[in-house]
Design a protein around this nucleic acid. Sequence first.
DNA 1: GTGTAATCGAGACGGTACGTCCCGTCTTTGG
DNA 2: CCAAAGACGGGACGTACCGTCTCGATTACAC
Lengths: 210, 210, 210, 210
Amino acid sequence: MPDAARRSERSRNAILQAAMDLLQEKGYADLTVEGIAARAGVGKQTIYRWWGGRGPVVLDALVEKHSGSGGPPALPDTGDLEADLRPVIRAIVAELADDRLSATTRALTIETLSSEDFAGRMRDRLLRPQLDTVKNRLRSARAAGQVRAGVDLDQAVELLIGPMYHRWMMRTGPLTEEYADGILELAMAALRPGAADRPGAPPTASSDLM
Amino acid sequence: MPDAARRSERSRNAILQAAMDLLQEKGYADLTVEGIAARAGVGKQTIYRWWGGRGPVVLDALVEKHSGSGGPPALPDTGDLEADLRPVIRAIVAELADDRLSATTRALTIETLSSEDFAGRMRDRLLRPQLDTVKNRLRSARAAGQVRAGVDLDQAVELLIGPMYHRWMMRTGPLTEEYADGILELAMAALRPGAADRPGAPPTASSDLM
Amino acid sequence: MPDAARRSERSRNAILQAAMDLLQEKGYADLTVEGIAARAGVGKQTIYRWWGGRGPVVLDALVEKHSGSGGPPALPDTGDLEADLRPVIRAIVAELADDRLSATTRALTIETLSSEDFAGRMRDRLLRPQLDTVKNRLRSARAAGQVRAGVDLDQAVELLIGPMYHRWMMRTGPLTEEYADGILELAMAALRPGAADRPGAPPTASSDLM
Amino acid sequence: MPDAARRSERSRNAILQAAMDLLQEKGYADLTVEGIAARAGVGKQTIYRWWGGRGPVVLDALVEKHSGSGGPPALPDTGDLEADLRPVIRAIVAELADDRLSATTRALTIETLSSEDFAGRMRDRLLRPQLDTVKNRLRSARAAGQVRAGVDLDQAVELLIGPMYHRWMMRTGPLTEEYADGILELAMAALRPGAADRPGAPPTASSDLM
DNA sequence: GTGTAATCGAGACGGTACGTCCCGTCTTTGG
DNA sequence: CCAAAGACGGGACGTACCGTCTCGATTACAC
């Protein structure tokens, strides 16, 4: 309903910056619309008008931050899948292991769990691009015969990523480089063609086959 | 500080029951201490005295519910690891896929992400027992030579469980039986001894070796 | 700190009216901020923002009520001081003697005893105007030679008023018309010039001499 | 209902002492049953059993304190009424003028205003004895012809006392020795026989005539 | 240039829930 | 059986934010 053309860019930036700052300082649970507005020097209505609540503001703020690099770059393809993935996996673990760095991820996850609507936007705008870089590398590896032909790439990506997020979320153990390497090695073993390739369990229908 | 010996069992039960009821009816986001107290016919102070907030109450309520069965039973051991695990994996996916059933898990996860303190209690009292049933089955499989000797069982459990939680949380795709089977099959391939067993990547130190 | 220009007149009136109603219905001891807010259809914060508690609200409500008549009128001056004062004194006794009518006075007095700050406001806004009407009549009587020249008018007013409030407060005896007349007669004897006028005890410095 | 014979004297004293201490320290408004019980090292029930609330406890504590002198002594009778009364009046004003000393009186007055029941007990046990010493001196003065025969002694006492309590309560002015003397002088003029003794206004029926 | 219509900062508003304090009652345990 | 201790159901406190709603004061477009 509001006229986006007349929107104040200055306010938008101040709000996103304030949200990021407060998220770092006080955590998501203590983040309030009133706090953001005050810090940004902005009326609350401006936030409600353009976003509707703190969740979308945080999402926007993070998208803004991450899209600074113009989207995640494609992974290198040296021919050695495991070597190419290792830095990525290690980086994820390193970020999750750092309470400061993972504060925003924590915030997003909470909001994702709270709102299906938010979940969709967050998935498409933040998560999917990241997952797709891995997925694309796996696809080329599959084409090169380094990954079993029947493997569903979405499942493969989650096999790699899921365990780390689970350990992070549930705090079931330390998030170390060794852990990253261990999961990577297991996942590689799962994907590698070989004697273990059984004829059963045909590939599930998946959008990655196109 | 309060004297646990004089605690009212009647109030405790009423509170846990009320919390479970309201959780089902209104979801975690709309669950309030005041609401629980009113429904249970109890003063708010009684909740704050013994729990300190809604999070711990919900945790206790769920522990109570799950421990009704006297703790999770050991998995069957037919000698076929994949066959023994399949029902477990499918059950997890089925529960997560059902919005009603997974509402409480969602609630606990939010609280886990919000409070480190809560995370620890929740992990130890609810999650660990569940994971341990899987871990124990994997241990016996490893002893039987069906799982590579060098595998860290904690990593193995998370390799199985993590992807499903990730998909559930992030809504990256449908949580179907096929998905469960696919992840199980991938994980089995990762654990199975054989040509894929590489000498590198020694097992990380882990408490599961005893 | 709040911006008085943007204050809601509607809320202000509703709150003062609700306070008056509840004061009549339930008495001061059972008067709560929450009750006033609920009855007035107003958020509690609106009361705390502009008044700070129930005491100031009640004071304002009573000031509002009493100032409806545009302040207390000057007493008549027939030349007969005692005759002019008698209706006033009797009216005060009559009001104090009636539990319903004096309930608010009781409330104000309690608050006055509890808070020095409140005492000042209540004195200046409610009590002083009433006392001044008597004081003014006494001043004109003194000018007319019907009251000893040396008399401190503030003391004279309190000589008249004080005994009745004391009896009311301490319930040391019945508050009847006879009592009013008795006190009035004693006070008149104290003020009347004559043989009793002794040279000692010079008048204390007082602002009423102008 | 409770058996007074088995009452613990130790608890009774501890409670009264704690009540007095807290009254001095925090004032009547911040005095709580729980606070008294904690300070006295006593269960709350002990207070409710034997007194019923904080009001009666404070009353008892003050009666205890004042009755230490075995009741107020009779005033001296030098033949000069004004001279005999002056120290009493000045003492009252001095006590009321001191915030610390008058804190208890303030407390009693609030409770007196709040509860008719309490008012009666307070009047009979604390106030009346004090007033009677003055009244008795006035009676002897009347017998000696220094006070008009028709004067109601209860009214006379209140003419002396009332103004000071009024000024104290309402904070209408400073409570100084000059004020005490001024009121005393006015009251003496009111009571003194002489030309001012008018035949009208017959004495009201009063218990002081016996 | 000058209306004029929308956004802006600001913050008051009706509400809901918070977490705390204290009430007066009830229950447990020990002397 | 009384006393200490204190848990209990209850109610109000005063605060923090919610999301909505008015206010002028910019501000940028249409005329």
